[in-house]
Amino acid sequence: MTLDVTDLRKTYPTGDEALKGVDLSIDGSETTAMIGPSGAGKSTFIRCINRLTEPTAGTIELDGTDLIGLDDDGLREARRDIGMIFQEYNLVERLTVMENVLTGRLGYVSAWRAFRRSFPPEDVERAYGILDRVGLDGMENKRVDELSGGQRQRVGIARAVVQQPTILLVDEPTSSLDPETSNTVMRLLTEIAAERGVPVLINIHEVDLAVEHADRIVGLHDGEVVFDGPTAELGDDALDRVYRGGDPPESGESRAVTAADDGDGSVGDRFAGDGVVTTDGRTPDRPASGGS
């Protein structure tokens, strides 16, 4: 599997330049974490890869296929190979766990069979297998709106993995979760990816989680890559370039402490609102500046 992104640019209709020419290459089965402050363009980058957001310029090649040139049918086929996990889970709340997981197989069944929930037995078996793997065995008939945040993100993982993707794109998987659940979810995610030999690209703003779980770190600042290297090479100067003097956010209780210790408090505040679930449970409309 190779993902080759060259000179990716995105300018929103409002004039905001979210990505200013990003080059990134991923191959093998490594876990790459993309870090950066809110508004750096991390979400935009991930959403451009499967064209949930249309990039303005640049090329995206997945195993030699140029995703940007694809027509609607071609894009649907390409999307089957790209698993995506979202910040707010984006599960269909009123459907059951099983229906949500099987959503990952929609690209392979006809609309009528999907409507009647008549999936091929292999797909159902795959779905059961992955539900066992993420620790949700026996929950297949629960409706998703009955689940906790951590359970929902497990369903999210199962839905992406059941696609049997060649790459997993993960957009802020933990920012709606508490620190402990965040860690569990990250471990589960990276373990499953490793078992299946699928590379993962994770957007994450908690640097400590990125360092703990990723093989490679890409630092994004203001729409440009300012660091790209193995996790071990991520030093203070690199973090400085990514966050431009601001304290990098961390997961868990330490975040609050950092913010409190921070003299002016403004930097801590900048991250405090990041990834907060809106009270009505909706995904906030992603503005031009990008969620993060």
Binding site: R76, R80, N90, V92, T103, L106, R159, Q163
Partner: peptide
């Protein structure tokens, strides 16, 4: 977001 997730699966 729920619609996008379904679309993202192809």
């Amino acid at each position: 977001g729920q619609v996008e997730a379904v679309r993202a699966a192809g």
